[in-house]
């Protein structure tokens, strides 16, 4: 009796100790940005339904930076990113022999929002926004009439994405002209719903966040039409972001796929192909509040994946990129 127990417990123990190093088969492992997560979740849900449980997908949210760390460590098959890969991250991937394929998966439009009672600032130019958000404005630009003399004498209160987010990086690059550089005296939150509440309750507020949060709160917020380089002001919408006319604040968001895993794991390749299949994923993208890419973009991205074209098309932060043009560039790894 005792012997049998001992034998049983030894078997159990060795099972426990050996197992952590094994991994369930046929699982696609994805991680990355919280901005890309809703799309990946939707695609994973439909993909698993279509595969009838033969392939499983898990999605983590470690953020763009944290996602790249795991990705370049060879832990994940693909990782979501709300900005292009950075030099250091590409370097890390190279060191570990992970070759990455850069794939735009959707468009996002950063939206500048105001309170519905604000009837004066319905259109603004990039220069005016720069005047508000640049570092020199800190403590100085505190009234709407400092932005444009025809604006009323009202205090200006600012809300914006947290400084760790890809959204903040892109906004500052597009508006201020220098990535990660802005005034510090604004209410920053990583939770966009907090920003929505802030602007919705403050008639003299201005804020910025992703289009999805504006679309869901249209009754409480107004969007500002933006004029760039003297062109006519454009309101953000699924249409204007998708056809590239809403500039400079529309940007692609990405998935980075590992060439190594795409070759060694057919199920991961299958998942990424599904992700870039316009018929399957364009509706899903729209359903979760993002902007689908153009048909040519989907085709170009799918080709890039199938041809296992490694490397990034970016050399630094860029604004107003065209997805098709981006994918046709020579990439460097």
């Amino acid at each position: 009796m005792n012997k049998a127990l001992t034998a049983a417990s030894v078997t159990l123990m060795s099972g426990i100790l050996a197992a952590p190093f094994a991994m369930a088969a046929e699982t696609v492992q994805v991680d990355g940005s919280s901005t890309v997560f809703p799309i990946t979740e939707a695609v994973a849900e439909e993909f698993q339904k279509e595969m009838k449980g033969d392939i499983r997908v898990t999605v983590g949210v470690s953020g763009t930076g944290g996602g790249f760390k795991k990705f370049c460590n060879g832990e994940t098959a693909a990782t979501g990113a709300s900005r292009p890969i950075k030099k250091e991250e590409a370097e890390l991937c190279k060191q570990n022999g992970i070759e990455f394929i850069e794939l735009p998966v959707s468009m996002d439009a950063l939206t500048v929002v105001i309170h519905p009672d604000n009837d004066w600032a319905t259109t603004m130019t990039v220069e005016e926004l720069k005047k508000v958000w640049e570092p020199e404005a800190q403590g100085k630009i505190t009234n709407w009439n400092q932005i444009r003399s025809s604006f009323p004498d009202k205090p200006l209160r600012l809300y914006g994405a947290g400084t760790d987010s890809g959204t903040y990086d892109y906004f500052t690059a597009a508006i201020v002209g220098k990535e990660h550089s802005s005034r510090g005296d604004f209410t920053a939150s990583e939770d966009d719903n907090v920003l929505v509440q802030g602007v919705a309750n403050d008639p003299s507020a201005m804020g910025f966040f992703g289009l999805a949060y504006y679309e869901e709160n249209k009754d409480k917020l107004d969007a500002v039409a933006i004029s760039w380089k003297g062109k006519e002001a454009v309101l953000p919408s699924v249409e204007t972001a998708g056809n590239g006319s809403y500039q400079p604040l529309s940007r692609p968001i990405f998935m980075y796929a590992s060439k190594n895993k795409m070759q060694s794991e057919p199920h991961s390749m299958k998942f990424m192909e599904y992700y870039l299949n316009e018929d399957k994923s364009a509706d899903l993208v729209e359903e979760v509040g993002y902007v689908p890419m153009s048909s040519e973009s989907y085709q170009a991205a799918l080709r890039t994946l199938r041809e296992l074209e490694v490397g990034t098309a970016f050399t630094g932060s860029e604004i107003g990129v065209n997805v098709v043009e981006l994918l046709s560039r020579d990439k460097h790894y």
């Binding site: 426990i16 997560f37 983590g60 949210v61």
Partner: peptide
Amino acid sequence: GALTYIAFLPNAPISGDFPFINFD
């Protein structure tokens, strides 16, 4: 690194096959 999206459950600890209990 816990996941945010996962649409399957861990294997049940008790199964019909020998050794009936597993720690998967």
